[in-house]
Design a protein around this nucleic acid. Structure first.
Lengths: 333, 333
DNA sequence: CTGTTAGCGCGTTCAG
DNA sequence: CTGAACGCGCTAACAG
């Protein structure tokens, strides 16, 4: 690796001058600048980001920590993150925890050591202990799609309770009264919130909440499949089902098809997220849409406002718009 | 941030001793070690990865550069990469180029400056120029699912030509003779190879190659959709279609459904990759399966063999097994 | 406008 | 077994 010193020697100037040239500082003679630049190019010199980082206390890297890279929701968020990170000339380290909290903590530790300048995270769990670990880091943290137990972090999310409300309202208007829940793990905040949204909406319509209609599983395809299986075994099975996310909804669809039932003729179904696949599948999935790319982009924007040292005293909470996208998996009873 | 010096002062020892303790070196008194360790924990000291990196010339980070994070194929590969990176206590910087070559080059430059220790890449393009840029880096590079123009890099891939052969053979055995191609961009090597596989297999069965049955589009849902649209407009449309990857196949399915045709009754279809959706959708997609997770894991393993300085003289080429997974989108004519 | 000097935080000699 | 001194490659003062 050629260093700044090599360049300086070859150019017959001091390292300081080379440093000034490559950092585009003023106060360097135009001719000299051009000359040095030429040498830099000739030698293929690229400044060592590590050494520079040690000096400037900046690494130009942030990180995105997510629970499930196989759920297309997160890649879409990641694209949003990258798009604004690009503007700032930052790279992003993507960490996928596969929902194991222990891995998440290990990542956070390593990231801290690597001196990333900020973290955007959708926690794999939401206990106070985990939040404390994040709080102890001395770098900005933005939470995505997650309720904060400690009021320390900026948050970007949609209103899950209202979102689920839209879904249940739609079922109600279509005449459904026996509505099941294919719920996600209530140990993560979106799981809990969507559960609450279900309960509240059902109650609001004066429908009795029935335990047997409520299931809970992992936030993935198999989780949805298993939950739906249970619902289908009921003597009096639901005519409509809300699933806590699209992947679970797709799992539920698989379960329903397996028993020979038709969608939406026999059972209506609504998901949450509006991943790309929802409009690629047949029948196309009715779902509560949340702005994934924007969520990543806005979170990153908020992160950089802190990374760049702007003093923003209070944690901010940004609620993004959601909407019900009615497609082909819902039908009047 | 507390530094090694702070710890040393508090413990009343030299920084060298603290360094030895945290790096688990021998030759330090057991009692002293325990004492220092306690101080380290009390103060919550974490060594600065940047400073350490400057000294040791190692950053403990590698990178994975992919063209399309929205194609579930790549997240699966990424999981494989992460799984072995974890073992080595490395983190991985994920760069998504959205298939723009220019972005890829920018990433590679930044990564080089950040002194990542190795790169796993599925190039967004495959020109000699791009390969040269990679070759000039002085770090190990492993190519995934990509032919190498320059014989400089380790490669992990499946035999695309044989893979497509499996698909065409299956069509042939089912009685199909009019077989269309929903092809991916031939500017990337997997696109070109799968095209060649199609041509060769068709010819091998003594079927005349017809230009009108061959289309080419972007390697995504819309690409497949557009290609299929063109095929459907033909006076004499194909009875079977091979798509260059599953996402394109799903796009083709959308196009077919839009015209009211049935799958597989009216048209049979086979994809490539075997992404998770392929078995979640209805009808379930027949496809050529390649081992995604393993591909990432093996590539990373090969990368680390070079990162850790083992002298492996010749570039290696690892061909992984593929197989045809027959599901519900193919049928006897 | 340019060069000299001094660290950033750490790991590594080399003495002791 | 332990400590003092040096330097990794770079940028930030401070002189000139």
């Amino acid at each position: 690796m050629t260093t700044i010193k090599d360049v300086a020697e070859k150019a017959g100037v001091s390292v300081a001058t080379v440093s000034r040239v490559i950092n585009n500082e003023k106060y360097v003679n135009e001719d000299l600048r051009r000359y040095v630049l030429k040498i830099v190019n000739d030698m293929g010199y690229q400044p060592d980001g590590i050494a520079r980082g040690l000096r400037t206390k900046s690494t130009n890297v942030i990180s995105l920590v997510i629970p499930d890279i196989n759920n297309p929701f997160y890649p879409e968020v990641a694209r949003g993150v990258q798009s604004v990170a690009d503007e700032y000339e930052y790279v992003v380290i993507l960490c996928n925890t596969d929902r194991v909290v222990q891995r998440e903590q290990k990542f956070v530790n390593i990231l801290n050591q690597q001196r990333v300048e900020g973290i955007i995270i959708n926690p794999s769990g939401s206990t106070r202990r985990e939040m404390n670990i994040l709080a102890r880091l001395n770098i900005p943290v933005v939470l995505i799609s997650s309720q904060n137990i400690l009021p320390n972090f900026d948050i970007v999310m949609v209103d899950n309770i209202q979102g689920v409300g839209l879904a249940i309202d739609h079922f109600y208007e279509l005449g459904h009264r026996r509505i099941g829940l294919v719920g996600g793990s209530r140990e993560v905040s979106s799981g809990e919130q969507r559960y609450q949204g279900y309960i509240q909406s059902i109650a609001r319509h004066g429908i009795p909440v029935e335990e047997e209609l409520i299931t809970e599983g992992k936030f993935d395809h198999n989780g949805g499949y298993e939950c739906m299986k249970r619902l289908l075994k009921l003597k009096n099975r639901p005519t409509a089902v809300f699933a806590a996310n699209d992947i679970m909804a797709i799992g539920a669809v698989s379960a329903i098809y397996e028993t020979g039932l038709k969608i939406p003729d026999d059972i209506s179904i609504i998901g949450f997220d509006d991943i790309a696949y929802s409009r690629m599948m047949y029948p196309k999935l009715t779902t509560v849409s949340q702005p994934k790319f924007e969520m990543g982009a806005i979170a990153t924007q908020m992160l950089f406002e802190r990374v760049t040292g702007q003093e923003i005293p209070n944690p901010r909470r940004k609620i993004l718009d959601h909407s019900l996208v009615i497609r082909d998996t819902t039908q009047r009873i």
